[in-house]
Computed example of a mutant assay.
Amino acid sequence: MVRGTRWFVGAMAVLCVILVGSGSHGGPDAGPGRSVEPVRDVVANRVMTWNLCNPCKESNVHRAAEIASFAPQVLGVQEACVRDVEAIRDHLENLHGLVYHVEYGMVLEKRSRCGGTPWNPGAFGQAILSAAPMSDHVGKEYPEGGSEDRGYMAVTTEVGGQDVRVFNTHLAQRRQESVRAGQVAVLATEVARHERAVVLGDFNALPDAPELSRIWALAVDTDPRCRPTRTAAGTCRATTDWQSKFDYVFLRGIAPGEPRVHPSRYSDHHQLYADLDLG
């Protein structure tokens, strides 16, 4: 009896050690401070922008799968809810072996956009996911948002082995040209402070729109053929389902790379990404 009891107690102790150990290595209940090594590598010089479409009620599993197929080093998303971005990041890690850091640039709390309760609606705005840590995070709401609050965010992170200032923005909706002009003026003032910068986002304007002139004075589109003239703008690749170029990867102090546009089943905006030459 005594020997059997001792054996049972010992076996249970070993089992507890095994269970505790298995739950402490990045499992679903591991704390937010856990350090997880990526299973897959990202493309170190690839940057990407994507308006997620909201409210579209698409599956975050599908969104993560599309992002994983391109594995960008840095991704800027717009029309994003915090809950969706958190889920996308978890799916990228757990289903695809891609580990990202995330920073947010939320500009409003809105239940119709992001769910939640009337007294605790979800946060809505922009986010940046980066395979490298980010620093010097800034999130600003534009003084005038137009029909809906809008803003920009910026971080310093690594692209192609180099430290780069990365901006992500979403400008006012169509037919609000004067509002966008004011927003671009605010954004351009901040971009001009940096010799090397990547500006991602949904600008809701065609390349030759007058309100984008302040950005064009500082940066170039990642497609060297796409310029703010009426003739050149016609060669720019469309980034939306209505065949307009509204999404941009603007580069300041960085040579343009070949852009790629991928139409998505899960948004009315295409995924736009580019592999940059920072040498």
Score class of each variant (00 low, 15 high):
Cys236Ala: 12
Asn204Tyr: 00
Arg180Asn: 06
Leu171Ala: 13
Glu177Ile: 08
Thr189Arg: 14
Leu206His: 03
Gln173Arg: 13
His194Gly: 05
Arg214Glu: 15
Val166Ile: 13
Leu187Ile: 07
Asp202Phe: 01
Asp247Gln: 07
Ala181Cys: 03
Ala172Leu: 11
Asp223Gln: 11
Asp247Val: 02
Thr222Arg: 05
Thr239Tyr: 10
Gly234Leu: 14
Glu211Arg: 04
Arg165Met: 03
Gln173Glu: 13
Gln173Lys: 11
Ala233Asn: 09
Gly201Ile: 01
Trp242Pro: 01
Glu195Cys: 04
Phe167Gly: 09
Val166Gln: 09
Arg237Val: 11
Gly182Arg: 10
Arg165Ser: 03
Arg165Pro: 00
Thr239Val: 10
Leu200Asn: 13
Ile215Met: 15
Val186Cys: 02
Gln243Pro: 01
Arg214Phe: 02
Val199Ser: 03
Phe246Lys: 11
Thr235Lys: 12
Leu218Thr: 13
Val198Ser: 04
Ala219Ser: 15
His170Pro: 01
Ser178Phe: 04
Pro207Ser: 11
Glu195Gln: 15
Leu187Met: 09
Asp202Gln: 06
Cys236Pro: 00
Phe167Trp: 04
Glu177Trp: 05
Thr189Ser: 15
Asp221Gln: 08
Ala172Asp: 09
Leu171Pro: 07
Asn168Thr: 01
Ala172Gly: 02
Pro224Gly: 08
Gly182Met: 08
Glu190Phe: 04
Cys236Thr: 07
Pro224Trp: 06
Asp208Gly: 00
Ser244Trp: 03
Ser213Trp: 00
Val179Ala: 06
Pro207Asn: 12
Glu177Val: 08
Arg196Trp: 00
Thr169Glu: 10
Thr240His: 02
Ala217Cys: 07
Gly234Pro: 02
Glu195Ala: 15
Gln243Gly: 07
Val186Gln: 15
Ala172Tyr: 07
Ala233Gly: 09
Glu190Cys: 08
Val191Gln: 08
Gln183Val: 04
Pro207Val: 09
Ala185Gln: 13
Ala217Phe: 02
Asp208Arg: 05
Leu200Pro: 08
Ala238Leu: 05
Ala197Ser: 14
Val184Thr: 09
Lys245Ala: 13
Gly182Trp: 03
Phe246Cys: 06
Ser178Met: 11
Asp208Val: 00
Asp247Thr: 06
Arg196Cys: 06
Gln173Met: 10
Gln173Ile: 06
Asn204Leu: 05
Arg180His: 04
Ala217Met: 02
Thr169Ser: 15
Trp242Phe: 12
